[in-house]
Design a protein around this nucleic acid. Structure first.
Lengths: 234, 234
DNA sequence: CGGATCGTTGACAGGTATCAATGCTGGTGG
DNA sequence: CCACCAGCATTGATACCTGTCAACGATCCG
C-alpha cells in the first residue's frame, strides 16, 4: 500500500496563491476571487518511487498536479504485461480524465520521489462553471495529453528498436532539469517502446560502448547529435 | 485539391435543432436559447475518400462533427512515411485540438465518402463561455480522444503482427454499422499497426485462408471467436 | 486493350524474442 | 563488518518473425 503523507490540509487560499509552481499549474490564471470559491481541501502529498498515486479501479475523484518528480502512466494488459503510455513531469496534470467521471484510464506510478497536489474533481467543476479563468488551462491540459499520446504513438512505436530507444532518450533529455536526464529501468523502457527488456538493455549497452550516452545510476548524459543521426537512418 | 461541396449555409438554428444525429453530436445538450447565440454559419460538407478535411498546416479554425463516413487521422513522419493514430466515425469529433488555437495535430482524410458539419472554433468558445450545456459534451470528446489514443497505443502496437491485425479487425468490427465491417487498404493497416504493407497483406490473406474473415471488396465479415483466440495466445 | 493501382506471394537477410546464464549493486541480517 | 540475497543489467545462442526486394496476379477505368 502507499505511504501517503498529507503535509497539511488546505485551509485558506494562501498556499495556492503563493504556490511556487503556480505559473506552471492548472490554477495559473485564477485570481483571489476564484480561490474563494474553493470549499474542499487541496492536499499536498508525497510519494516514493514505485508507490501508486491512483489506479484504474479507483473512483475518479481527484486530478493531480505534479509539483516535482516524474510519473509514469501504466496501462495493464490482459496477458499480465504492461505498457507505459506517457511520462509526466513538473507542472503536468495526471488523471485529467477524472473530469469526465467515468474512470482513470491508467495507473499513475512515480518513477522518482514525487510531490503532487491533489485537487478534488468537484472543485474543478465548480470553478469551471463559475469562473472563465480555468477553461483555458483545462483546454491546454487536454490538448497536451492528446498531443503527447499521439506523438508517442507515432514516434516511439515506429521503426527499429534502436531508432525507438534513440528517440525516447532524446525525449527524456528534452525534459531534463539538470545536465543529466533520468533513465528508466530497462523493463520500463521496453514498456514504453513495445520491445523486450533484453532488447532495450542491449541497445542501451551498445550506446554506452559507442560513447553516445554516459550512464550514471538512473541518470545519463546524452550526445544528442549522435542519437539524432540514428533517427534519420532508421 | 479537395472537392468541397457546401450544401447550404446555416441561416437559422432549425437545421442544428433537427439534425438527425444531434443526440450523438457535440451539440446534443444545447437548447433553443443556446442556438440563438450562434452567429457564424455552420456548414455541411461532403468529402470523397482520399480528399483532405484539414491538414496540420491549416489554420485551426474549425472543429468537425462526422455525420457519416469514416475518417483517418494521419500523422506524417520525417522519413516520408506516415502513421494513422485514430479512426473516427459517425458522431465523433475531428480536430477538437483546434480549441487550443495552436494547430491541428494530424491530417484528417476520409476513408469513405464522408459528410461532416464544420463548426467555427469561435462559436464553440462563445457557447462554452455563455452556456453550461456544452462543457459536458466537450469534456466527453476530449476524454474519448485520449481514451482512444491510449487504447491504440497500448493494444494495437503490442505483440506480434498477427495479434495486432486481429486486434485491429476486432476494433473495426466493434464499430461496424451493418453486418460487414470496413477493411482499410493493406498500406493503411500497416500505418495503424506499425508494420509493413507486405506483412499486413500476408496476415489478412492467411486469415482469409483460415476462414476467419470473409473479405468482400473493402468490407469483411469477421469470426470474432477465432480472432479473439489469437489475442490470448500472442 | 493497356496502364495504373493495389493485393498477394516468394526468397532471403536482418532484426527481435526467447531461454538461459552470468555479472553487478544495494540492502539486510548475522 | 561482511556474507548473502534479491533485483536489475548484461550478454550469448538460437529460433522465429518481420522487413526488404522483387515478381506476379487481380481489378478498375479510360
Amino acid at each position: 500500500m502507499n505511504r501517503i503523507a498529507v503535509l497539511e490540509a488546505w485551509t485558506g487560499n494562501a498556499r495556492c496563491l503563493h504556490c511556487n509552481i503556480r505559473k506552471l499549474a492548472l490554477f495559473a490564471d485564477l485570481n483571489q476571487e476564484d480561490f474563494d470559491l474553493i470549499h474542499e481541501p487541496i492536499d499536498d502529498m508525497d510519494f516514493d518511487a514505485g508507490e501508486t498515486i491512483y489506479t484504474m479501479t479507483d473512483s475518479p475523484s481527484y486530478v493531480y498536479t505534479i509539483r516535482s518528480g516524474l510519473v509514469k502512466l501504466v496501462h495493464d494488459l490482459a496477458n499480465g504485461s504492461y505498457r507505459i503510455v506517457r511520462i509526466l513531469r513538473q507542472g503536468d496534470v495526471a488523471g485529467i480524465e477524472a473530469l469526465n467521471g467515468k474512470a482513470y484510464l491508467q495507473n499513475a506510478v512515480p518513477l522518482l520521489p514525487t510531490a503532487v497536489c491533489r485537487i478534488p474533481r468537484a472543485e474543478i467543476e465548480r470553478l469551471n462553471d463559475q469562473s472563465p479563468r480555468l477553461t483555458k488551462q483545462l483546454t491546454e491540459r487536454w490538448y497536451k495529453a492528446i498531443s503527447d499520446a499521439d506523438t508517442w504513438l507515432s514516434e516511439l512505436t515506429t521503426g527499429t528498436s534502436r531508432r525507438r530507444v534513440a528517440s525516447f532518450l532524446l525525449y527524456l533529455d528534452d525534459n531534463k532539469h539538470s545536465d543529466e536526464c533520468y533513465i528508466p529501468s530497462r523493463e520500463d523502457i521496453g514498456a514504453v517502446l513495445a520491445i523486450t527488456t533484453e532488447t532495450s538493455s542491449r541497445i542501451i549497452a551498445e550506446f554506452r560502448r559507442n560513447g553516445w550516452i554516459t550512464v550514471n545510476g538512473n541518470t545519463a548524459r546524452i550526445n544528442r547529435t549522435a542519437l539524432q543521426k540514428i533517427l534519420l537512418r532508421e
